[in-house]
């Protein structure tokens, strides 16, 4: 048994309208951890969250909370709270009353209630908004009320279902930092659902990548980014160049017509593999110096860098570079051993 497991999913499966939406979900979530479920819409990440919250019943498998099986525990008896996608504030109550809701139900005495609500309003930066109606707030403010309303109950685990989805980019970035700060200062477990890979990488201690109701990979943001288990994960976590290749032997991979030094081993000799190279890892060099050559097809200014597409004998390379190349120019490209990621080829 590992220590400090707070939520544990064992072989969870869910069918909806005869279709399997979750299959064989096995996951342990540690106490005080920031875990993110990441995946495209329809991958089952929200369903998994709702299983922990108690709003969806698992067809098969078990849910454990702090070592106790909670499959049959209704949502209102679970020690988790949820921040819903569309905030779901109570429209007939003001900010103060919204936050007070859970405390009242749990019969927290009035003076303590006031104290805790005050602390929460400070935490989410909404002092002075007590008497505002839920509908008189901006999206960001509603979001913060929703967070305060959940956190004020001091749950061991906070579930967040794409809470920043409706906010604009700048506000979203601010809230990401804010959420991470709250999670660390309150020392509780956050289980976060998003389809935004950047959000997942920025905030999480661990990322769970899901697709078609299954978990593809669990790991730290660095693991997921640098060592994706398959092309889907590689592609979903940021842009990447994925090429077919052959593993000549340990530390040597052939792709794009050349044999490259790499840091991967443990593949069969001449095993067919897939090679992932991040766009920022492709070095643009002169035509003579590069093992790979290609013609610059397009250049787009992206702020921090230029995004270029380079056609090399039919394969379109995506390159991020701070230096601009002219369209139509023939360039060379090189890749360092460290930046080459080898994955087993997928069937299909």
């Amino acid at each position: 048994m590992e220590e400090n497991i707070i939520v544990s999913l064992k072989n969870i499966a869910v069918d909806y309208d005869g279709e399997r939406v979750l299959n064989g979900i096995d996951l342990d979530i540690r106490d005080k951890e920031f875990v993110t479920f990441l995946g495209p819409s329809g991958c089952g990440k929200t369903t998994t969250l709702r299983i922990i919250g108690g709003f969806v019943e698992a067809g098969e498998g078990d849910v454990f909370f702090d070592g106790m099986r909670i499959n049959d525990l209704p949502p209102h008896k679970r020690k988790v709270n949820t921040v819903f996608q569309k905030y779901a504030l109570f429209p007939h109550l003001n900010v103060y009353e919204n936050i007070e809701f859970g405390l009242k139900i749990n019969k927290v005495p009035e003076p303590q209630r006031r104290e805790r609500i005050k602390d929460m309003l400070e935490l989410v930066n909404l002092m002075g908004f007590e008497t505002r109606g839920a509908n008189q707030l901006s999206g960001g403010q509603q979001q913060r009320v929703a967070i305060a309303r959940a956190l004020v109950n001091r749950p061991r685990v906070l579930l967040l279902d794409e809470p920043l989805g409706a906010l604009d980019l700048k506000l979203r970035k601010e809230m990401q930092v804010e959420l991470k700060r709250i999670q660390q200062s309150m020392e509780i477990t956050f289980i976060y659902v998003t389809h935004d890979q950047e959000e997942a990488l920025t905030m999480s201690d661990r990322v769970v990548v899901m697709k078609d109701g299954e978990i593809l990979q669990v790991g730290t943001p660095q693991d997921i980014y640098n060592e994706p288990v398959n092309a889907f994960v590689a592609d979903f976590i940021g842009e990447s160049n994925i090429l077919p290749g052959v593993m000549k032997k340990d530390f040597q991979a052939e792709f794009a017509g050349h044999v490259f030094e790499c840091v991967d081993k443990g593949f069969g000799e001449n095993e067919e593999v897939q090679v992932v190279v991040r766009p920022e890892d492709v070095k643009v060099v002169s035509y003579e110096d590069g093992p790979i050559d290609g013609i610059v097809e397009s250049v787009i200014f992206k702020g921090v860098h230029y995004e270029m597409t380079v056609d090399s004998h039919g394969f379109k390379w995506l390159i991020h570079s701070t230096k601009k190349e002219d369209v139509g120019k023939v360039i060379g490209m090189d890749i360092l051993p460290d930046d080459i990621h080898i994955m087993r080829a997928e069937e299909e």
Partner: peptide, 20 residues
């Protein structure tokens, strides 16, 4: 989801009915 939020915050069906 408003009703789910009430449940999530600990209210039974009766209390969700009365309060929401």
């Amino acid at each position: 989801t408003t009703l789910e939020a009430a449940q999530d915050l600990g209210s039974s069906f009766v209390s969700t009915f009365a309060r929401v």
